[in-house]
Write a protein that binds this DNA or RNA. Sequence first.
DNA 1: CGGATTTGACCGGCGC
DNA 2: GCGCCGGTCAAATCCG
Length: 454
Amino acid sequence: MFPPPELDFFSSSHPTIKKETIPPKDHHLHLNTGLQLVIANAGSDQSTLDDAASSEAEDKRAKITELAQLQEDIQRMNAENQKLKEMLSHVSSNYANLQMHLAALMQQQRNTESTEHEVVERKLAEERKHEVGVETVPKQFLDLGPSVSNSSSDERTRSSTPQNNKKDKDKDPDSESQGWDSNKLQKLNPPQSTPEATMRKARVSVRARSEAPMISDGCQWRKYGQKMAKGNPCPRAYYRCTMAVGCPVRKQVQRCAEDKTILITTYEGTHNHPLPPAAMAMASTTAAAANMLLSGSMSSADGIMNPNLLARAILPGSSSMATLSASAPFPTVTLDLTQNPNPFHLQRPPFHIPFPPSQPHTQLPHVIAQALYNQSKFSGLQLSQDVGSTNSQAARPQALHADTVSAITADPNFTAILTAAISSIIGGTHHTNNNDNTNPNVINSATIGSFSGN
DNA sequence: CGGATTTGACCGGCGC
DNA sequence: GCGCCGGTCAAATCCG
């Protein structure tokens, strides 16, 4: 899409940048020379003074023309920059759109397949039961799809939330069939399978540093509750998406107990309405992550059979991690954006991409730059199926500001990286890894490395 | 005045 | 059965 020279726009070797930086240097030398002449000739006869004056005027003229040329150059570069920004924003939103669409299609396809293979799945589950005693995690996974009518009473009761029960009793059944109430509908019609209900089960959690009470992800949220959670002095806030009536998406926001500068935002569900580009990025990311998590967990017997496996693949220089937790009650993907960037990877100057207009928070250039740098190096991935391992990580020094999360996720690579990484972990538990790491689930560094910025 | 937030009450699950 | 806990509701309150 971009012609090669434009791709190099931000590189230090770009001719236009050299043009901008070098001439002023020359100009400065000229100026010094002139001053020296004046000082050297001070006190001599009138003619030499005239000569000095004329050369000074000449200098000034040259200076002015040079200045005009520079201004012209700057204007041209600004225009070019603006054009590039527009193009990038356009491409980003297009990509996010496609990603959303793909996720929806995949989900749709899985639903149709799931009915076909329901019998087979049940049979397999039976076999697994015979093979190993471990059953809790498989149940959680297999029950993610409400269509699965196996004997998992434990998860089934979980899916019928208190709210649903109450609504069954209290509310008019003809009231708007919100996506959020899909569980209720399923309870009434068990064989029906809705993507919303499936996606409701998987969660995507984002850890990032922020002073603000909430990270800006481009969506509109309404707070509907706040609770003190056990083991954390900070209250947990509950939000629901208000961009459309009946949107099932909810999120929980809570500060990390160990490091209160870290904000943990947990997303749940899939939007049932069109999103602005700013929100599209995060939404498609969470949707894709949840999607991959659910599909992968259902197809990978190894992952299911080893619920206590702890797998991690942290590459040298990785600045972010994705943690996959299959622990109860919901499988959760945690994106850790609190890590310290590795200075060895800072090879090119940071650049800006246009922020969506809906970002309400301050957008300091250096923060954006750091976020994008982090994003471009989003290459580490940690897989964990260990209970409590996701949020108990030690606080890390220096980290990504939560305000920049949308900047990161706004980049198409983010979704692609995350999706591919999760996919490679979940679906690739059978793969042999040539990594030296003793852990059986480590991702091949080549796989992840191919996604890292450059 | 309408929408957003706060906050106590309520509910169901779960462990003892 | 009881208490704890996470999650949600809804009346009261706040705010633009």
